[in-house]
Design a protein around this nucleic acid. Structure first.
Lengths: 147, 147
DNA sequence: TATGCTGTAAACATATCAGTTACAGATAAG
DNA sequence: CTTATCTGTAACTGATATGTTTACAGCATA
């Protein structure tokens, strides 16, 4: 998996924590420990959703959190980025072979990984941007949070 | 993730399906569509467990399934191989920075991915080697299998 | 007009992955 | 004993992926 997801989540948390302030890609890159171009490339994926407002040009431009941090989950973020958390990346066997094992294992494993991926999304839908912030700053919001 | 896991599962299913027969790394590699050296390297990880018997030398050497295909699950296989299905591979921020977000996000994301990984293991503990075989050959063993 | 921001692309270095080749060690067959 | 065969393991290679750096067009603000 690409670590772009980590960058995006980090940016979301940072932007949310800095409230209405507009942050430049440079400021975000410094905090995330990466380069501004990468931040811009990743946050550009969120242009057509309401989570982040982008001011593309002019001094004072940058990114601003514009969603409900309690509603936006890591699953939402991953979904927009089309992240595959689990992926085989390589298929054993060959569909054209006679042996049912050789011809079937590729698709079968793809299916299993696809299921695992869905489970990841499901799990991440329980973690909101607010939750992350609370975990970092130690401010427990819900009493019943697990661990 | 590495696709070694796919190779291992494929080999397990193949060996199981061929009963007591001893198969060489070459035969397995042909079926999996990879090279014998890779098969040997991967199956060597199972030397100290009872799932597979290895005859290391001499003509007629090779690998043989020696476990209970109903009991051995994909989770068992992954566990022995120490597979990380989900891994960040890159840490945003830096533990030494003052900002709590910058210093905390790395560990926090690691924790989340670690949880996802555990969930993957949990899911895979429901899939046995027999299950895979049944899926491939269309022989339904349990009536209540999902999909 | 000058400045500063995003969006985007290209070039680069590095790491990872799988394939290939090779060889030591061991065993069975002749 | 000699030969053939198989695993375990390491080194080398080529392809692909990943993140960094640099650069530039487009645009808004002062």
């Amino acid at each position: 998996m690409n670590s772009d997801f980590c960058v995006a989540v980090h940016a979301f948390v940072y932007l949310n924590h800095h409230g209405g302030k507009t942050c430049s890609s440079k400021e975000l890159a410094t905090n995330i420990c990466t380069n501004p171009a990468r931040v811009r490339k990743i946050l550009a994926m969120f242009k057509n959703c309401e989570f982040i407002t982008t001011i593309e040009s002019g001094p004072g431009g940058g990114y601003q959190f514009s969603g409900d941090p309690d509603k936006i989950t890591l699953s939402d973020i991953a979904s927009i980025m089309k992240i595959d958390f689990v992926e085989p990346g390589w298929r054993s066997g060959d569909t054209d072979m006679d042996c049912l094992i050789a011809s079937g294992m590729g698709n079968l494993m793809d299916g299993i990984f696809s299921d695992l991926n869905k489970d990841c999304y499901s799990k991440l839908s329980d973690i909101s941007v607010s939750d992350i912030e609370h975990r970092i700053f130690g401010t427990t919001k819900k009493a019943g949070g697990k661990s």
